[in-house]
Design a binder for these strands. Structure first.
Lengths: 235, 235
DNA sequence: CACCTATATACAACTAGACAAATCTTATCC
DNA sequence: GGATAAGATTTGTCTAGTTGTATATAGGTG
């Protein structure tokens, strides 16, 4: 605690301000230049302190824009019924989604066998980003059998919710049948979407939702930012 | 005067240059490498000489930057009315201040009870460095009740003077009610600001200023560099 | 021996400056 | 009002130079 370097002192000082709340969650930090003046050190020393805080996932930075305080890590609960919005509302976060693409294409071999449909069947492909308090926490893509849900894409477009859209298709409830979890390194594209660095760890969940009778409904993959999300398997 | 070591000879040589003025106050010395070349000795021998001069407070050094000649020490007078600028002007020095941060936050327990305001009240927090002739002599931080002085921060920002800013808020005079003095060791951050070494002694004054009726106005701490400042309590 | 002086080498911490890349701001035009 | 262009800000990256610290070696002195 005593003989610490300058950048360590600055880092712990800033960390105190963050946890004390005088630097609010999601707010912007002073620029590196301002901080270097405040602490009377070179900008590189500030950057060392900031990179330390970034590794601890307390802040994140965007070139040309600034350095920001991160939101709280999210606990994403994985139970029998996994509902993105309700999940985050339960955790006191504000959920939102951003559509990246919504189209129809032929099912891959994996998708077809998981959904128990014929090879080369058409599927709806829905791809997007999940946010919590305007912070991106996950990239997802799901496929649904086009034959079974002909107008699903329009419903999703309108309602911005998979659960609601499926209801319109007559599926009032669906259940998480299987979930596989693995860890992968983020591609540069994924990293950019999730505001993390390439090769940062991602939690990759591959899941299948079915109706109560066990008929497959939806198959998809979600890549959670490992720094923002902890998956919870309680109950 | 004869049997002196290499480093003693170099030290007294440099000291002569300083007092003679050929190495001006505030100027930078040649780098240790250059000095070791000039005197034909190892760099460590130079460092031994320099550290001797540093202990005598003739020079100070900054890692990565260089070694500099120090200014004269300051006598800081503590009476009923403590006014930074006037104080130094009286001592024939040129005062200046540098703002490090100016923000609002919740009062700590100590601050609230000293200012006689409610817990969790908002306060203006003003933090900075005091200079005499461009040499830092103290780090200060003060808090003022935000409710009582709503626009104080803007006034301080504009006027760069607490006394003047308080006048704009209707406080024409204030009196030093209490002052506690203690000695503490400098943290690495404090040392960097004051151009001294970590664990060098600081004079820590904790003070409360009130108006004539005894109502608390300002509560603050000032850390004087023990090497640069002597506090004076003459009547 | 113990201690100080001095040399030699290597690395860590920090400063200094410059430039590139991304972003934000502002003025201008239609 | 909205699109565009120019300029200013801000973070990212790189090279170079300076002081701080640690270790090892050797000679001289009380």
């Amino acid at each position: 605690m005593k003989n610490q370097t300058l950048w360590q002192g600055i880092a712990s000082d800033l960390e105190k301000e963050i946890v004390a709340g005088s630097l609010a969650r999601g707010s912007r930090l002073p620029t590196e230049s301002m901080l270097s003046q405040r602490y009377g050190v070179n900008r590189h020393t500030i950057r060392k302190a900031l990179s330390h805080l970034a590794e601890k996932s307390l802040i994140w930075s965007k070139r040309g824009s600034g350095v920001f305080v991160m939101q709280k890590p999210t606990i994403y609960s994985m139970g029998e019924r996994v509902r993105f919005s309700q999940n985050l509302l339960d955790a006191g976060r504000t959920p939102s989604r951003q559509k990246l693409s919504l189209s129809q294409r032929l099912a891959t071999h994996e998708e077809a066998s998981s959904l128990k449909i014929k090879k080369n069947s058409k599927v709806h492909h829905y791809e997007g980003i999940s946010f919590a308090d305007d912070e991106p926490i996950a990239l997802f893509h799901s496929v649904f059998c086009s034959k079974r849900f002909p107008a699903l894409d329009e419903y999703i477009e309108d309602l911005q919710s998979v659960t609601q859209a499926l209801k319109k298709c007559g599926v009032n409830d669906y259940i998480r049948a299987t979930t596989y979890v693995s860890a992968v390194a983020a591609s540069s594209l994924q990293a950019n979407h999730l505001r993390i660095k390439p090769n940062d760890p991602l939690l990759c969940t591959t899941s299948l939702n079915t109706d109560k009778s066990g008929t497959p409904i939806e198959f998809g993959r979600t890549y959670f930012s490992g720094k923002h999300v902890t998956l919870s398997y309680e109950a």
